[in-house]
Each structure stands twice: as C-alpha cells, then as structure tokens.
Simulated assay, not measured.
Amino acid sequence: MSANKTNKRLSDIPFSVLDLSPIVAGGSPAESFRNTLVLAQHAEKWGYNRYWLAEHHNMPFIASSATSVVISHVAAGTSTIRVGSGGIMLPNHSPLVIAEQFGTLETLFPGRIDLGLGRAPGTDQRTARALRRDGRNDGQDFPEQLDELRAYFDPSLASGTMHVKAIPGEGLTIPIWLLGSSGFSAQLAGQLGLPFAYASHFSPGNTVPAMELYRRSFKPSKVLEKPYAMVGVNVIAADTDEEANRLGTTLQQQFLNLIRGNEVQLQPPVDSMDSLWSEYEKQALEQQLGSSIFGSPGTVKEKLQSFLNDTQADEIMVIAQVFDHEARLRSYEIVADIIKP
C-alpha cells in the first residue's frame, strides 16, 4: 500500500444503494416500483446512507426512466435516508427543468435530496435523438449546462444577470455530484470542488486512475474543503458462495444481452453460463464486470475490504441486479451486517 493511502475499514465509511428499479422477466413496472420502495425502506432500516436511482431510456429491464418521479415515490415512502439520482443525464434535459424538478423535490423533502449528474445519454443514439429533439447535443457542452444549472440554485455563480429563475429551486442547497466512467467528469468535479461518483460497476478498468485524477485536480470550494469520492460496485451476497455466484448469472446475462444488442427484461439465474456465452464474450464480460463481488458474507467482506484498499473511496454505493426480490433484499441485508462497526 502506497504512503498516501490510509487503512480504512469498511465500518469507517458510509454505504449506499443504487437501484435501477429492474423489470424482471414476467414482471411489470408497477411491480418494480413496489419492490423499489420496499428495498428503500429496508435500506433505511439497515443504515444505508443514500438511495439513488438512475436515468435510462428504451431499456426493457429498467423502470426508472422518469427518475425524478421515482425519487419522489421513494422519498415519500421513507423518512431519513437521502434519496437522489445516480444519475440524471443532463444533456437529455433543459437545465431549468432539472433545477425546477429538484427544487420541487428538495422543497417536499428538505435536506434529503441529492442531484447526481452524468453526461452520457443513458440510452442508444436513436432514443437520445428522440429525447433531445434537435440531435445536436452530444454532451460536449456539459460544463456549460452544469454552470447554468448551478446558477439556477445559486445566482451568485452566474456570469451575468439571471433573468430566468427556477421556482422552486433558487436559494436551495442541493448537493450536486458529478458521475463518470472516465477521466472527464473526474477532472471537472475536482476543478469545481464537487463530490464525484465513479461507475466501477460497469467500467472497472479506469477506477483507480479516475479517483487519482479527481483528487489531483481537486480545488477547495464552498461546497467541499477536500475531495469526496464515491464508487459504485456490483455486490451480490448470499449465504454461500455457490448461491451468490448463481444469483450473479442474472447480471452476467444482462450484460451479455447488452453486448449482443438483445435488450430484454432481467432474466432468472442459471446454474452455468457456459452454454450461453462464447469464450470471447466471457472474456469481455469478465473485463466489464471485473470489480463485481459475488459471495458469502466472508467472501464479500474480504473482497469489499480489498476494493476499499484499492480505491480509497469515501463512500461505496452497492448495486445488486438480482432476479428474485427476496434474494435481493437478503443480499443488501448481508452487506449491511458486514459493514456494521
């Protein structure tokens, strides 16, 4: 371990939940939203710090496309856990609309709302054009959009006079996070002194370099005095390694179907993936899901500690794409037990 790393223990940092509100084979969005609320209520009881939902579109296995609405659903059904977006894909929207939506959420649920922002479309290019209409916004103006959005909350950040106000929104303090799977948002978050969340759950290879870039780029701001970095990781826990590995085949099938362009609802687990993927696909998935942790409580604890040692994360956000709702709840419960002091 290098000299600039500290020996953080799992109990030293907060753990949080990222939920895609998955639609399982044979299920429905209505069922997904019910399950999301139940998971959020359990996460709150088990001591998780925040509960984030992600914006994706035209994906048959994800129900959280209207992310702000689902955040409201979760916040209304819980009382203390922070609720937010992981993330809102800002290039899909007018910054004013997002300011108003999250101003409304913060007004309804004061002190509990997070606004995590990404610059990817969260979908395919055809759907991105349907969302953005003019087709010109490819995320390159994300820094300018971000400046505009932040100024709606805090007009002192505006470069000129603000003639348009976000109501509700103006004057509210809503934590803004930048999300990323590359160095772009890591560096921008550092330069602006904002918290940063890295998507190791689908882009593990660049995790440590992005974290280091964020910390190197960091400039203190009125938001943060020092860097604060969260990392998302797939964790599927069960009572035995064998059962966890079996449950994990649902996630592997999800990514296999994405690679093949065969987007379907979340599939039930299988005993073995060997008959489903080619050797090339297996290697590609092992690379894309390389940081994923499947296992029994002992295995998960050991691998999570190793992950924390490598990333030096200030917070870890757990993603568990598990087909069976009860098994998904059990996975998060096991993690909560592992991280207790």
Rank of each mutant, 00 (worst) to 15 (best):
M1K: 10
M1F: 11
M1Y: 11
K8F: 13
I13C: 10
P14A: 03
V17M: 09
I23T: 07
G27M: 04
G27E: 05
P29Q: 01
S32M: 08
N35K: 14
H42F: 12
A43R: 03
N49W: 09
N49S: 15
R50I: 08
L53W: 06
L53Q: 11
A54Q: 07
E55S: 07
P60N: 08
A63P: 01
V74R: 07
A75F: 09
S79I: 00
I81H: 04
G87A: 15
F102D: 02
T104C: 11
T107H: 11
P110W: 06
G111E: 03
R112H: 08
G116P: 12
G118H: 05
P121Q: 01
D134H: 12
R136C: 06
R136I: 02
L157Q: 12
V164I: 15
G171R: 02
W177I: 06
W177P: 03
S181A: 15
L188R: 08
Y198Q: 02
A199M: 08
S200T: 11
S203P: 00
P204D: 01
A210V: 03
P227M: 11
V231W: 01
E243Y: 11
N245G: 00
L251T: 15
Q252I: 09
Q253G: 01
Q253Y: 01
N262K: 15
E263H: 13
P269C: 07
M273K: 03
G290P: 06
G290C: 11
F294L: 15
G295L: 03
G298H: 11
T299N: 08
D310Y: 01
T311H: 03
E315L: 10
